[in-house]
């Protein structure tokens, strides 16, 4: 039977009296991409750093490729790849030289040219790392993470601070890794990143798992579908009938209606708009967003603004 690449069993990590990770258990199956979501201080990076072997658990058991990461030897480190939370590269060398140096550490590395194509940096091969943009440097980080053909790849907020274009390029690289069978554990602040990439999502809050599910299932937990309508400039809350006024957002400019009976809500809205001769351009009807579901799960109030997902 194939070994489960990542096994975490009742993991606890204490810093003094404070539990950064408190009785966390999960597994990541072969070829799966697990996204770990959670607010700052939820324990995401602490968990990842234990999986990467940087720190030891206070209690519980962790196994990556059958090995305790804190005791992982060279052979074990050759089988994992990682991208740290912040870029960590010497600036003086070129991209190709940097990758060549790291490739030389592994028994069966990918060719430098292959990796550069994979992360879309082939045109920057001879550019000094220090001259790259933030997004390009993150892709060099990713290239170094995968150059050794890792069986398990850890990505700690790989797209934080990147512009939408750079994020999507990074996503493309990660998607091709998972399609080739690499097991990936990803921490992220971006709900849409988890939605795009993950087979499974874990939500951490206060060091504990508050959800362990698929993106689709997590979305369903977000509650009913939502109708959003931005009021024309000349309409105020006072112009709305009582049934609609209670759905006004905090700024008083949009209606946000969460209701299981979407058809009835729409009929009411359209009928009112028809009487006032209002244009309904911009009316949105959508499923519960993953962000709403995430906020519900970690116990935060839902935002009433229309959520943007670049």
């Amino acid at each position: 039977m194939a070994m489960t690449p990542v096994v975490v069993d009742h993991l606890v990590k204490q810093y003094g009296d404070l539990a950064a990770v408190d009785d966390v258990s999960f597994e990541v199956l072969d070829g799966q991409l697990l996204a770990v979501l959670g607010p700052n201080g939820a324990g995401k990076t602490t968990t990842l750093e234990i999986l990467e072997g940087f720190s030891a658990p206070t209690a519980g058991t962790v196994r990556v490729l059958g090995t305790d990461p804190h005791r992982g030897d060279r052979a074990w480190r050759a089988r994992i790849g990682l991208v740290l939370q912040s870029t960590s590269l010497d600036a003086e060398l070129t991209v190709a030289d940097t990758l060549g140096l790291f490739a030389g550490l592994y028994p069966v590395p990918l060719r430098v040219g292959e990796v550069l194509e994979l992360v879309d940096l082939i045109d920057d091969a001879q550019t000094r790392v220090g001259a790259l943009s933030g997004g390009q440097r993150r892709r060099v980080d990713l290239a170094i993470g995968i150059v050794g053909r890792p069986e398990v790849l850890f990505l700690d907020e790989p797209t934080t601070g990147l512009d939408p274009e750079a994020r999507r390029r990074t996503w493309a690289g990660v998607e091709h890794l998972t399609s080739a069978g690499t097991t990936v554990v990803l921490t992220t602040h971006y709900i849409d990143e988890a939605d795009q990439l993950a087979d499974r999502v874990i939500v951490l809050a206060g060091g504990r798992i508050v959800a362990d599910t698929t993106p689709g299932e997590l979305r369903r937990r977000g509650g009913p579908s939502t109708i959003r309508y931005r009021l024309p400039d000349h309409i105020t809350g006072a112009d709305l009938p009582a049934g609609l006024a209670r759905h006004l957002d905090t700024k008083g400019r949009s209606l946000v209606i969460r209701n299981t009976d979407v058809a009835a809500s729409l009929r009411g809205l359209i009928s009112w708009a028809d009487r006032r001769h209002l244009d309904l351009a911009g009316l949105e009807v959508g499923p519960p967003s993953l962000e709403d579901a995430y906020l519900t799960t970690i116990g935060e109030p839902l935002t009433s603004e229309v959520h943007s997902h670049d």
């Binding site: 292959e114 194509e117 992360v119 879309d120 890792p150 069986e151 890794l177 690499t182």
Partner: peptide, 23 residues
């Protein structure tokens, strides 16, 4: 598309599990 072809060219991103010699 470019990335996909790179993956196709790379025989396998994940190495075989048989023992390999470290540098």
């Amino acid at each position: 598309t470019t990335a996909a072809s790179a993956v196709a060219d790379a025989t396998n991103l994940v190495p075989s599990t048989k023992a390999v010699r470290l540098p």
